Amino acid sequence: MSQMNLGRLAAEWRASRRLRLIVLIVLLVLAGHGLSALAARTDADRQRYANDLELQLRLEGLRGPNLWAPRADEAEAALEAANGRVPEVSSAGSAQAELQAWMTTLAAENGIADARIRVEETLDVPDHPGLWQVLGRIDGQIPQYGHGTFLRALSGGLPWIQADRIEIGDGTSARLSLVVRGYYRRAEVPPDDAASGDASGSGTSPAPAPAFDDRAIPAQETRMDAAPEIRMESVP
């Protein structure tokens, strides 16, 4: 029976051209699909081999000359250089005096009329035991068209003097209100000098300048990269 079926199938295969074309198309589709899957697998294996080779080369490079020690020395030197650029003061009162002198110069050079300059008490900088921070405030009248010059002069104090809040009006007699935060590095005092200063009483900090109401300053986390709040007001 099976031989008869096979013979009939062979006869139909020889007699039907359409059947032969259909079978050929099916075989071509299957072959194309197989080649595509094989090519994708080959590309994946090639990429995996390249990644493994790159990782091997990197690991072999780590086994070579020790580069971490020079890099650590370079990073430490860069950190010391950055710390060395921070203005150095000998006492908390000196930090207040430095910031007050800087704000006085800023107001005078930019023609701030009726300038009222006040500074807060010196505070420690969280997570930076060798730094002090001082808040200062300038209130006055800025000249007309003097906004750009004033802001450029203010940016000259960066990064160690940063603006916490700026309020500038508009008009011929515009109101100015500026709150800045200055950072200063504590000077290293030899133990003998510190002991003699404590004994003579000369090591005490001078009385702080009149402080402004810190409730007028919005509460914020102390950050070295905090952006200032700028507010522009129009005066009719």
Rank of each mutant, 00 (worst) to 15 (best):
L135E: 06
S94C: 09
M224F: 12
F212I: 04
R18N: 01
V29R: 07
L154M: 09
L53F: 07
Q47E: 11
R175S: 15
A219W: 01
N83Q: 13
A211R: 08
L27F: 14
D213C: 10
D164I: 04
A219Q: 07
E167H: 08
T204Y: 15
G156A: 15
P206C: 01
I25Y: 02
T172I: 08
A72N: 05
R165Y: 02
L59I: 14
L151A: 10
R14V: 08
G61K: 11
M1L: 12
E120V: 11
I138A: 01
E80F: 00
H128N: 02
D198I: 11
N5Y: 00
D45A: 14
Q100S: 12
P190L: 06
A77E: 06
Q56N: 04
A10D: 03
G84K: 01
R185W: 03
V179Y: 01
A39N: 14
G146P: 06
W102D: 13
E233L: 15
R85P: 07
G84Y: 06
D225I: 05
R17S: 06
A174L: 10
T122E: 05
A199Q: 09
A40Q: 15
G7P: 00
A113Y: 04
A37W: 05
G201T: 06
R231C: 12
A78C: 05
E60W: 03
A97I: 08
L35C: 15
R118T: 12
A39L: 14
L38V: 13
E120A: 15
R46Y: 06
A39D: 15
I166K: 01
E229M: 13
S202D: 15
A92I: 04
P206N: 02
L131T: 05
G203Y: 04
D73E: 03
N83C: 00
V125G: 00
E121K: 14
D170C: 09
G34D: 12
P208V: 03
A199R: 08
L38T: 14
S200A: 14
P126A: 08
G111R: 05
E88C: 03
F212H: 04
R186M: 13
L158Y: 10
A82L: 08
P191H: 08
M232F: 08
S36L: 15
D193F: 04
D214P: 14
L123C: 11
A107Y: 06
V89E: 06
M1H: 09
E233H: 09
Q96F: 00
L154Q: 10
L9H: 07
A108R: 15
I161E: 03
P87I: 07
A44S: 11
A107H: 01
S173Y: 10
R20P: 01
L24G: 02
N110D: 00
T149P: 05
I25A: 12
R181I: 12
A209T: 10
P159Q: 03
L6R: 10
E229V: 13
D213Q: 08
R152K: 13
R41A: 13
A113W: 03
L62Y: 06
L176K: 02
G34H: 09
E109Q: 07
P218T: 00
P129G: 02
R175I: 02
L38G: 13
Y183M: 09
P190M: 02
A194G: 01
G157K: 04
W132R: 02
D45I: 14
T104V: 09
G93C: 00
D127W: 01
A219Y: 00
D164A: 07
R71V: 10
